[in-house]
Design a protein around this nucleic acid. Structure first.
Length: 276
DNA sequence: AACACGCCCTGCGCGC
DNA sequence: TGCGCGCAGGGCGTGT
């Protein structure tokens, strides 16, 4: 479900809702997520701690605790982290519930169970198995023309697939790759190493502007049951989508129909007249 | 070594 | 109304 803008929206919400609050209890209802939930570690090590900072690395959220441990969370396709009263009804997909001092719950809900939760030393996060091989953050200056050009110079992979590869650049998923490639007028099937530095300049700028605008809009909520922030509200970026999910509709720029293309088993959307 | 693919799971909308 | 199918915002592990 969530890509970088949605995860960043959750991060900003968590800063408002749970920063510096104390963990009173933790309950695990479903330990089988993408990876097994470290039940004993959670129950033994996080109770009594305060949440000192909330960071993001790619699509991972990192809640740094007062005891040099961090809780790492990935939302997968359908995961949510949200804050609610301890009285509110527990859903069958509320897998982990963290009780905070003051009577609120921080809950991890994830119907498809593609998400994960782990606990790991804060000073060693760069060696965590899920974090150590991640590529650059797209909204930092590390994501520049030279990095991109060098990294893909021997690769004929389609650029869509390359942008979805987290060992190259993190945070981009199916929605925002399609949107950024449309803005940059680059065909999703184009070989990565055919992009010139000029292309990369435009593509990097397009990725950054799409992601920033999506963060401003609080992410993309495609259906009622789609993405929700920490307080339970949806985002607004779905109103700004140009191609994602719009197969058969007219391209805003030229009027030609938007095409759906399957790459690596996932849908891409593009305009074959505007994107080359 | 680089790359595509199947698969992990539940839920929804569609055609029949 | 129910059933089977395809599809869904991610990414790991496997096989070529």
């Amino acid at each position: 479900m969530p890509e970088l803008p949605e995860v960043e929206t959750v991060r900003q919400g968590l800063i408002q809702a749970v920063l510096n609050r104390k963990i009173k209890d933790v309950e695990i209802f479903q330990p089988q997520l993408r990876f097994p939930v470290p039940v004993e570690k959670l129950q033994r090590d996080i109770i009594g701690c305060e949440i000192r900072s909330i960071q993001r690395r790619g699509k991972y959220l990192i809640l740094e605790l007062s005891n040099n441990l961090s809780i790492i969370v990935h939302l997968g396709m359908s995961g949510r982290l949200f804050v609610t009263s301890h009285n509110s009804k527990i859903d069958k997909h509320d897998h982990v519930i963290i009780s905070l001092e003051g009577g609120e719950h921080l809950r991890f809900r994830d119907p498809r169970r593609f998400g994960m939760i782990d606990v790991y030393p804060s000073d060693d996060l760069e060696n965590h198995a899920r974090l150590r091989d991640l590529g650059v953050e797209p909204l930092t200056s590390d994501f520049d023309i030279n990095y991109c050009f060098k990294k893909v110079k021997n690769s004929q992979r389609p650029i869509k697939n390359m942008l979805m590869d987290a060992s190259f650049v993190v945070g981009l998923g199916n929605i925002y790759t399609s949107e950024a490639l449309y803005e940059a007028k680059i065909h999703p099937g184009r070989a990565s190493n055919s992009l010139t530095k000029k292309h990369w300049k435009l593509l990097i700028a397009s990725i950054q502007s799409v992601l920033k605008e999506a963060i401003t809009q609080g992410g993309t909520t495609l259906q009622d049951e789609g993405f929700k922030n920490v307080l339970g509200s949806g985002g607004m970026f779905q109103l700004k989508l140009k191609v994602y999910g719009k197969a058969g509709e007219s391209c805003e720029t030229c009027g030609h129909p938007i095409i759906r293309l399957v790459q690596q088993g996932r849908s891409s959307f593009f305009c074959k007249k505007c994107q080359r």
